[in-house]
Amino acid sequence: MRHMKINQFSELKETASQTAGPYVHIGLAPKAAGFDIFEKNFTNVLAGSDTQGERIRIEGRVFDGSGTPVRDVLIEIWQANAAGKYNHPADRQEKPLDTTFRGWGRACSDFESGVYTFETIKPGSVIGRNGRPMAPHVNLWIVARGINIGLNTRMYFSDETEANAKDPVLNLIEWEVRRKTLIAQRSEENGQVVYRFDINLQGPEETVFFDI
């Protein structure tokens, strides 16, 4: 095959990443780009009417190194269900699968305000490496113009102080002051639970990003 060296221990190189560019919406969220083309669209709503768990909204903005909101960002999230199980065959924890919940969604920031939102449920705790439970968290992947390779981070919950204190991933961050960049703040607005999670790409309050 083209540019592929085949030998006994054949190892190919991962395809190189490139920026998603300013018009990422055309492919991944055509309605946001301004047109309608697909019958079914992938959206920022993860929970259906039958989905188990506490309904929450995740809301925030992404800021660049000058503190300006990034208004052309696309964010995807991946999370476990309310029982702490992922909808994927590799998750062999003995916990109930919620078939109404894929656990994945994508959102674009608003072109004016830069605000992104997800409508989802609060995930349960998932078993981590060596049997240590991880605090409830949501995995995020961020792409935009100017970002050459998608950025990975995690969002934790401000009302899970005890679980967060024992979380193996948060504890891996040796600079304790940086851990708080991963904690979303809970509030209630008209009975709706909202977690605010702002992301700083660069600067003094820079969000922790992971090489996963």
Binding site: N139, N148, L201, E206
Partner: peptide, 25 residues
């Protein structure tokens, strides 16, 4: 555009857990 949209800190390496080895179907 990458100048103001690139982290200044090194990425923190994470050994895979279920969160990374699973994904949407």
């Amino acid at each position: 555009t990458s100048v103001l949209r690139s982290p200044r800190n090194a990425l923190i390496s994470l050994q895979n857990s279920l969160s990374e080895i699973t994904g949407p179907q």
